[in-house]
Structure formats: C-alpha cells, structure tokens
Design a protein around this nucleic acid. Sequence first.
DNA 1: TCATTTTGATTGACAGTTCAATCAGAATTC
DNA 2: GAATTCTGATTGAACTGTCAATCAAAATGA
Lengths: 218, 218
Amino acid sequence: MSEAEQESRSEGRRKLSRGARQAQLIEATIATLARHGYARTTMGEVARTAGLSHGLVNFHFETKEKLLSTTLVYLSDEYRESWQSALEAAPPDAPDQIAAFLRADFDPKICTPEKLSAWGSFWGEAQTRPMYQEHCSANDLYYTSTIEALCQRMNDEHGYTSDAILTARVLRVVTEGLWRDLMSMTEPYERDEALATVWICAAAFYPRHFGPEGLLRA
Amino acid sequence: MSEAEQESRSEGRRKLSRGARQAQLIEATIATLARHGYARTTMGEVARTAGLSHGLVNFHFETKEKLLSTTLVYLSDEYRESWQSALEAAPPDAPDQIAAFLRADFDPKICTPEKLSAWGSFWGEAQTRPMYQEHCSANDLYYTSTIEALCQRMNDEHGYTSDAILTARVLRVVTEGLWRDLMSMTEPYERDEALATVWICAAAFYPRHFGPEGLLRA
DNA sequence: TCATTTTGATTGACAGTTCAATCAGAATTC
DNA sequence: GAATTCTGATTGAACTGTCAATCAAAATGA
C-alpha cells in the first residue's frame, strides 16, 4: 500500500497504463492471497493493498473470478518460463539438464515466501474449482513429461535401470513437498536446505552423477 | 444427505445422542469440504448434506470456526492413531517399522478421496490461520520425529550412511506429494501406484532392504 | 411435566457488482 | 502555443445477494 501511494503521489501520476496498473493489481492479489488466504481474499483488501479504490479492480478485471484466474496464469507462466530458460541455458547432457531443472524450482525469483503462499492458496481451492485445471493443467503436464523424458534419458544414456515414470514422479513430488514445507512459516529451514534435500534424493537414484552438493564433477 | 435422511426417518429417531449427532455433522463437514472447498463450505451446505437444519449446527458447535477446527482435529487424530497402531502391529526391526509406517499412509480407511480432499482444503488455509498449527503441529512434529528416528536406526543398525534428517524429509514429502496427486481428480493413478512410487523411493535409499514391491525377504 | 433437541424465520454484517460522476492527460483545433 | 474537446482511468456510493449467528417456538424423549 505505502509503495503504491508513494508512487502515485511522488510521481504525480494518478494514471498508469493499462498493463502497468493490471500488473500492480496482480502483485497486490498475490500479496493478499499470501497474507489472508484464498477464502479471506476480498476485492476491498486487494484494492487497499494496492492503495487504490475498490471499483478500480472491477474496472480492470470485471469479476473477482477473472482477477484470481489472471493471477494464477501469471504465476504459472512465470514458473514455466523460469524452468524452460534454465534448461536452455544448461548443457544438453541429461545430468546437467536434470540439475538445472531441479535447481530452477528453488530460484530466488520464483521461490519467495509470498509466491509460495499464493500457490498454496490456489492448490487448496484447485480441487473443487475448474479454474486451476483450465489454466494450469497444460503447464503441469508439460512439466511432468519434461522430467519424465529426462529420467528416461538417464536410463538410456547413463545405464540406470529405475522406472523412469516413477522416478520422475518422486523428483516432482519431492519438489512440491519441499515448497509446502517452505511456505508454512513454522518450518525452520530455508531454500538452500530444501535444495540439499533434493540433491540427496537425486543422489539416491543417480549415485554416479549426483552427490549431496548436487551434480558431480564438471 | 440421503443416508442421513434415511437414518433419521426410517429409524423414527429424530434425536440422536450428542456424540452421534456431532460425529454425523463432522462427516458432513468433511464431505462438504471435499465437494466445495474451504471457501465455499457454508453452515447451510453442511446442514443440507447431513439432512438437518442449519440452526442445529450452531447448537452443537456454536460457531463455524469450532465446527471446522473440530473436524480438523478429528482427521488429525484419526491419522495419528492409524500410523501408531500400524507401528505397534509391525515387527520391531527398523525396516519392518519403516515399511509399516509408509504403508499406513495409504491405508484404505485413511486414504479416501473425500478425506484427502478435505485435508487439501485445510492445507490451503493453514498457512494464514492459526487454527491448523494450534491443533495439528503436535501431531505433525510427532510424525516427523518418528520417521527421523527410524531413518537413524537404518543407519545405526543396518550400515546405511545417508543423512537421516534429510532422508526422513524425503520420505515424508514424497508421501505428502503423492496424497496431493491422488486428491486432484485429474491424476489418473490410484493408491497402489502411489504406494509403488513410495517403494522405489525407499529402495533408492535402502537398496538392501527395499525393492519395487516393498520390503525385501521376510 | 420438564429438560433437551430441532426447526426455520429473522437479523445484521459483509462482500461482489454496478454505475454515474469526476478528473488527468492526450489529441485536436484555432 | 493556448484553448477546447475527447478518452478512458478512477472514485465512491448504492444495490444485491449471501452467510453466520440468533432466537422463539415446536417436537421429542424421559
């Protein structure tokens, strides 16, 4: 709220471009979801967080439903783009790709308490509302098939024999579960310790290529 | 709803004992959470599901908050009692104990779609409300320290060398993550396949004692 | 009878939505 | 370059529906 007021007052600009204002409201929605949870996220609270009026949220997003689904798409796409670019930047070898893939989930830009908490709010409601599946199932399926393909390559190219589908599932749910630990504020460990947990899991399945510190050798 | 109506009509009993009526309302709350999610769980919907009037819910639980926290405690205690009795029934050897512990999470009595979905609703709101922590943190800490102790025994008694705390964390979050997969109805796999995933994870950490089918030998 | 349980109408608060009025900045005109 | 018009972003009050909570009356069982 204070930043938004500062912005509009100090710059003397009461009007922002459509895109900038919508981005500001999406940020405010993420913050509100993180602070109050899905059930107690109201249009009024989002507007107050952004330092703007109640009616403006409806002007830009028409309905609460659209505000929330837009926010979800924003988070989902940001996440997909993050791990996609991590894969592109990494060497093409399967171990390097897996290391980059797993590390991307704990990137400081993605893995913030606020964003994790907002994700958690959506997951809780996702089961019973079509919204989540409509907007995220494509990204989720893409994520799953990518890690499955990488695990298959570890078998084909590096002589491992574990079931690729099940191994990929373990790596995926470990990451999800660590996110859940990180977002519940009572848990007393941080991103680096979560990543260490991922590495010992990768080391358990691929002991010739991973160790407690991550990828072995160079 | 239909069962509840049948019960009260066919038996000719409009009055049930306090405990029985409260248990019925808790069941209806679980069903409503599973069907509609936390945000859309209303007193009226719970009452309708139970085939009773909504005034009665307030008579027995005073507030919505108390109804929900009582339901949460019910689920949490049922879960703890389930894995505790599984441990007591199993042989005292560490591998047997771990096998029983992991299998207990997928017991058909605990691991129903309805109950998993209700858990998911609570998790989504848990971050922002003290309710969850107040009522479940003791059970959760107990669960965590139990699996940590078992992993430590695998090291001490059976010559494994992995970090017990981190290994226990992997086993815990894999179970949680598989629950999440099972409760999202789009996922096309069942309890037995989830359990198979747990076994290959256990086999990765403890290859001399676990295989794809679970505990090795007898 | 008397206590307990159950009902359903009522109340008050609150949240989402709508809308008419306002206002700042851009475009246009002279 | 100044005055005017236009655009669309912004506000806040009013409307509407919903939900939790209350309560008086009815039903039930001992």
